[in-house]
Design a protein around this nucleic acid. Structure first.
Lengths: 227, 227
DNA sequence: GGATGTGAATGCATTCACAGCA
DNA sequence: TGCTGTGAATGCATTCACATCC
């Protein structure tokens, strides 16, 4: 079981519960890319795609693609490839996005508001059902069609909508405390934009996106290229 | 290596790059987290930090921390730990953020505008010097103090400010073409928010942040936890 | 012919364990 | 005693190569 996945790096594994393992963590990350790419192929009318084609589109070897998909079943047809529509459905099922997740957003600042106004999440299987903030000026308003609540409504809304995923887009100082409140109220997964490390655990998955970190990685890579 | 990885290629250079080779890619990702954590320790007044403390704050083993840092030099003091202020300075130098990078942003939609209004990048070593969009209504305006230009100004601005990093926050359809334009104009690193895979290469680093992918990963992990 | 699925081999990354130093 | 730096050992992930099937 994955305990810790800060910035998509180096997960810490639990000593217990090895049952789902045998699947490399990087393979699971690539699964999402395969889904995205299959959807793109579907839109362009392709009926079937080979591991080589899929890999080339993503910068991955064909062997890697085959092995990744084979962890989850025998989806391909020798001599033909993978049927696009079937794979979209299969991958959604594996990733758990064949059903709609209710998500809340905490921190309706610039970034949070931008996420609320993004209309593409629903067709990916995620619906933002409520937003939370501390600024009095925002309470009671709606952003992108989503109501903004005070934090004292957090637990009520989470339980009312059976919310298990949260997006945290607050300043760093507020994040740890909010993380605790969220988990206490039943949230099981957090997408964390705050530039701070949150303590994942056996009942909480954390995925971190730190924009400064992303730019630093580019800085390093570009410097290396130029050296 | 023939095919290119989304998270940037492992560049192979000789001579001065010796120092950069043989370093695990995950270690470089963690370097940014170490920097962030050291800055946090500094703010809380700690003068010195051990690999165990640092690791605990990030969910990483102490051995991992020591090995990662040792790839770049001998920074620690046996019996004491790592001096916080020195490490902040060292890590910035390693990551290349001790100098200010000029960055452009392409796609001033909801997400792009949010990034333009975020004030924290400069102290991390990145300054957004211009934004670009196709919407006539946005041209000539400023968002977060940054001027929005038409795309036909792209090359001029890039060369004028010696821009090597770009943030791409456009719809998927526009991304590939823009990527080509950016590289042609001299951009060496792209932070890509468009949900599409861009072709990295020996002279272009790409770091991708796909929000739907991030949520899918949480979906998978939460489902596994519940199983 | 063309493509999958998969054991075996390879190559990396992480962890161990300890010498050495403050 | 406490902590780093680092070879050695372990454990994972990726790639190879080929039997198998359409």
């Amino acid at each position: 079981m994955i305990l810790h996945n800060q910035a998509g790096t180096s997960p810490v594994r639990s000593e217990t519960a090895m049952r789902f393992n045998g699947i490399p963590t990087p393979a699971i990350r690539r699964l999402s890319l395969y889904l995205r790419q299959f959807e793109s192929f579907r839109q362009s009318g392709q009926q079937t795609v080979s591991s080589r084609q899929l890999g080339q589109a993503l910068g991955i070897t064909d062997a890697q693609v085959r092995k990744d998909l084979a962890y989850f079943g025998q989806f391909g047809q020798p001599g033909v490839g993978y049927r696009v529509v079937e794979m979209v459905s299969q991958l959604r099922s594996i990733l758990g996005t064949d059903k709609l997740w209710n998500v809340i957003l905490v921190g309706a600042g610039n970034l949070g508001a931008a996420l609320l106004q993004y209309k593409g999440f629903v067709e990916k299987g995620f619906r933002i059902v409520a937003a939370f903030d501390t600024a009095k000026g925002k309470l009671g308003r709606t952003i992108g069609g989503v109501d903004v609540f005070d934090l004292d409504q957090l637990e009520r809304v989470i339980r009312a909508h059976n919310v298990r995923l949260a997006i945290l887009a607050t300043p760093a100082e507020a994040a740890e405390s909010l993380c605790a409140q969220l988990t206490a109220a039943g949230v099981r997964g957090i997408l964390n934009f705050a530039p701070v490390s949150l303590p994942a655990g056996p009942s909480l998955a954390v995925n971190a996106v730190d924009l400064a970190v992303q730019l630093e990685q580019l800085s390093y890579q570009v410097n290396v290229m130029d050296s």
